[in-house]
Amino acid sequence: MAERAGKPLMQWLRQPGVLAAVPVTLFLLGGFVGPLILVWWYSLMPPRTFSLAQTPTLDNFISSAAGSYYISFGWSLYLSAVTVVILILICYPVAYGMAKLFGKWANLITLLVVLQLLVSENIRLFGWVLFLLKNGIMDGSALYLFGLSVPSILYTVPAIVLGLVYVYLPFMLFPMVLGLSMVPETLKEAAFDLGATRMAVFREIELPLSSPGLMIGGLLTFVLALGSLAESKILGGQRVIMIADDIESAFTFAQNWPRGAALSVLVMVISGGLVLLLLLRLDLDRIMGRR
């Protein structure tokens, strides 16, 4: 017994679960944690250098804060927030239908939503360009069929939002469907039976019980939109510079890796902070009735 107790680590390592987790752990360490540490470390290197073997400094953060990056940060946060709000409004009814009403037709919707993911995001966005272009599919069809020209929204902020909503819709829709399908019908019937109106059933029962799905969808789409690049480039035509744009140009055009790294760290801190804040405020266990 004494010998076994002396080697708790070896014993722990020999569990089948731990053994089975080794490959994926190594992969994540090399492919996810490693690059992250590199980025963090680079953000502390002196500006415009490429070596990792220098004295750490906070120069990149100080110059980033002093510069005009707050504008692109602002746009990114604003557009992400608008995207999340629009997605909630669009997806809730669809998710409700898929979870409760459509029956087997829900599978068709799932298929349609998933199918578009098979096509590269950039190609899909260029498809939207063709659609929205002056004399493009929408404008041209309207002109041909009804003889009226439609003002193009291409290269405007609404076009960027359209792109963001379009691209990230699945990430809101599916968590929501899951959240809504976890609300038992009998709870709604019971609330109804106790005198609640349809609105009260929604407010008191359905919304709080489906909120885990809503929150997860919201977090996913917000974080994804915060890091988005293609929508503002392709559909916005650089009208608005989002933070991912700035990061990209710092790494490529400006050849200032430490600055790009510092901006990346700031994005991570902001999105990580938001996730933490929401998860702390939201007691998932309580909502799901696990305690």
């Binding site: 009998t186 709870l187 019971a190």
Partner: peptide, 10 residues
């Protein structure tokens, strides 16, 4: 009073 009781878990 329902068979499942239908108490509100939240």
């Amino acid at each position: 009073v329902f068979q499942s009781l239908a108490l509100f878990p939240h």
